[in-house]
């Protein structure tokens, strides 16, 4: 029997739990479901292609499939600004899932990606971006003068509410926190911060999330996909669609587990911003949402969906 092998570069480091639980897991499942006829060979960040180039590499057909961050290609694909998560867009994971799968946002992105880039699109999962901090923060005012490590749109937002948000590279963050150059940083949520060892220094974890989003995404080159036998196409599509639900749920479980662990091992305190303050912070984010809405008709549509959802929750007037 013929074996088809696809190289699959990812933007995760080899040891990150997501490389195992998202990329290697899907790869193993597909191998099993195709009886070994279709092999997806995972490659960790940078080993074949640097993370920010995965999208381009898949688009030009250097590799047929890839897993990347939705933030990397926001400049070329406006809708990815929304995928990557607008600041304070939702208050919990399930809200982001509802937005993607019930309000039609996932399909909006799929259509856009196929039409403009010849790519099939799948969100890997919905998860949160949360701050880990050295100082307690309980209100919007507490952000004033706070020295935070951030990036992209979130950096813009945190600056707009008075934080001194700086973008220093991943490898320098730990030293920055340890020395007092930084008061806090976000790197995913609890699992991300924990893997980066932030809780060795940061004793506070802030909830709710700065955003809820499909930060990690799969892209598949449509031409390569079309060359697969029909049954393998079906298995690949179904597996990735199913993976979204299972992985989102599993990730939430792992978050709770890790949070309990860092609370026990590193004495971390969870701080929660009260709903009234959250609404205030959300209102401050609307200017940035509207900037993104102006990027394309699809973006405008998506931002309107987010507003509609938040109105239905009584958070926005």
């Amino acid at each position: 029997q013929d074996v088809i092998t696809w190289r699959c570069p990812a933007h995760f480091p080899a040891a990150s739990s997501s490389f195992k639980d998202s990329v290697q897991f899907v790869s193993a499942l597909i191998k099993e479901r195709t009886n070994g006829r279709f092999i997806i060979e995972p490659y960790a960040a940078g080993s074949l292609i640097p993370g920010p180039e995965v999208f381009n590499a898949v688009k030009r057909g250097m590799v047929p499939i890839g897993m990347t961050s939705s933030a990397y290609d926001m400049a070329r694909v406006p809708i990815l600004n929304v995928v990557a998560g607008l600041p304070l867009n939702f208050a919990a994971e399930w809200e982001g899932v509802y937005f993607h799968q019930w309000m039609g946002f996932e399909q909006l992105v799929k259509d856009d990606m196929l039409k403009n880039h010849g790519l099939l699109f799948f969100s890997d999962r919905i998860y949160t971006t949360e701050l880990s901090l050295k100082k307690p923060v309980r209100s919007m005012d507490d952000f004033k003068g706070l020295k935070l490590r951030s990036s992209g749109i979130m950096q813009k937002y945190l600056t707009s509410i008075g934080a001194a948000a700086t973008m220093i590279p991943g490898g320098d963050i730990y030293a920055g926190l340890a020395s007092g150059m930084l008061d806090g940083a976000h790197w995913g949520a609890v699992q991300g911060s924990s893997s980066m060892k932030f809780y060795e220094i940061n004793k506070y974890h802030l909830k709710p999330a700065l955003n809820v989003a499909a930060t990690d995404i799969w892209v598949i080159n449509k031409n390569a996909f079309d060359k697969l036998p029909a049954d393998i196409q079906e298995i690949l599509t179904r597996t990735l669609e199913e993976h979204f639900w299972r992985r989102t749920n599993q990730y939430q479980y792992l978050e709770e587990l890790e949070l309990a662990k860092v609370q026990k091992e590193h004495d971390v305190t969870v701080l929660t911003i009260p709903p009234a303050e959250f609404s205030k912070m959300q209102a401050a984010a609307i200017k940035i949402w509207d900037e993104v809405a102006a990027l394309s008709p699809d973006c405008a549509k998506a931002v309107e969906m987010i507003k509609e959802f938040n109105r239905s929750m009584g958070r926005l007037p």
């Binding site: 292609i49 640097p50 920010p52 590499a57 030009r60 057909g61 250097m62 590279p169 490898g171 320098d172």
Partner: peptide
């Protein structure tokens, strides 16, 4: 030959390493 894009991508990445 489709893999040659790697040469350019890796070079660009090296130009962008802050360390």
């Amino acid at each position: 030959p489709e893999s040659f894009y790697m040469v350019a991508a890796q070079t660009w990445d090296a130009m962008n390493k802050f360390i």
